[in-house]
Design a binder for these strands. Structure first.
Lengths: 196, 196
DNA sequence: ATCGAGTCTGAAACTTGTTCTAGATTAGCG
DNA sequence: CGCTAATCTAGAACAAGTTTCAGACTCGAT
């Protein structure tokens, strides 16, 4: 039994080292700087092992995104939101998240481009990212009841806008102010009342 | 003088052959099937020449997108829109465009993934795509005056939703009906009156 | 008709993501 | 402890995007 644990522990540690190395490399040079050989070397793992843990560079970076989203979710949970309507709270939350990304733009580059470039083979992992993102948005809304289909669609549009504005910002095609404005605009789709 | 024309004509022809070959390959197998060596061979051009015309695979596919958007714009111009409000006309237009993409999903895959994956080095070309897309949206709105900043932001959100829903659809993470619903939802941001 | 600049070709080389292999190590079991 | 399967390692090999280079060709001008 202790051996099972030991195995899992070592493997868990390997996985962590890989994710940390990737995060570090990404923060240092963006998507292109995360090179599989270097990730393997930095995390003290053979290339083949890296590929056993993460079947592609995209899988790896999507996992980094999951990791970061989890941390973000925790951070956001601590600080209360001040806005009074659900839409405004969502906007506030996204602007906070955006501020966090601005601190590590190259890390954001690596993660966001991986998520949007991901194809069918990464479906499950990207879905997880989507669920996490939506959880953050729903948290901010503080709904009393199940969201209606219309509201769900509005939330998806907010999420889409979130991704696409980031892409546009990362490629230097949208200034920061425009990103902020567009995020707020998208949040106007969320009705001010607290619908179920 | 005739020589200048002759040169330009031959070069124009080469460029066209390259774009056509890329389009064909993309339609046949999506982003991955557009392989630079094969594009070069199919268009009867050396690899180095291909790279002289289009400095990267992304540049090439973004040019294909420009090409297709131009054709789409022409097609759309012919058939009149029936909806009465600007937002509904935009929705109608995007749904038509989406229907067109559904006919060639693999071509859509190649183009859309190139556009969203493009980095700073492709800024100018992607901006052109953005301008073309916005022109299609603005055409559908039939504005009487210059759009206000708020309206411009709403249009950008519609455009962002357009891109992100496509990405999600292409990766098999959103069903067609959801794409349609979300496009309509985003278009609700465009006010029913005809604001300047 | 010929020259010089710019362009095109064909092929090799380089980079980085991905796969494969043979042998060492580790885990869990009897 | 000793066995077996799974895992890990080092390193070669492969695939596709990109770069490079020497030589041939084309253009436009003289």
């Amino acid at each position: 039994m202790s051996r099972i644990t030991a195995l899992t522990v070592r493997q868990e540690a390997r996985r962590r080292r890989i994710l940390d190395a990737s995060t570090r490399l990404a923060a240092g040079g963006g998507f292109d700087a995360v090179q599989m050989r270097e990730v393997a070397e930095e995390s003290g793992v053979a290339l083949g092992t890296l590929y056993r843990y993460f079947p592609s560079k995209i899988h790896l970076l999507v996992a980094v995104m999951q990791d970061q989203l989890g941390q973000l979710h925790d951070t956001l949970r601590d600080r209360p939101l001040t806005a009074s309507s659900p839409g405004e709270r969502v906007a506030e939350t996204l602007l906070r998240a955006f501020r966090a990304l601005q601190r590590e733009p190259l890390l954001a580059d690596a993660m966001v481009r991986a998520v949007i470039f991901a194809d069918r083979s990464v479906r499950a992992e990207v879905d997880t990212v989507s669920v996490l993102t939506r959880a953050i948005i729903l948290d901010a809304m503080r709904l009393g009841a199940e969201p209606s289909p219309d509201l769900l669609s509005a939330i998806r549009v907010v999420e889409h806008t979130w991704h696409a504005t980031l892409v546009s910002w990362l490629a230097d095609r949208s200034p920061v102010d425009q990103v902020r404005e567009d995020l707020r605009t998208a949040c106007r789709l969320i009705p001010p009342g607290l619908p179920g």
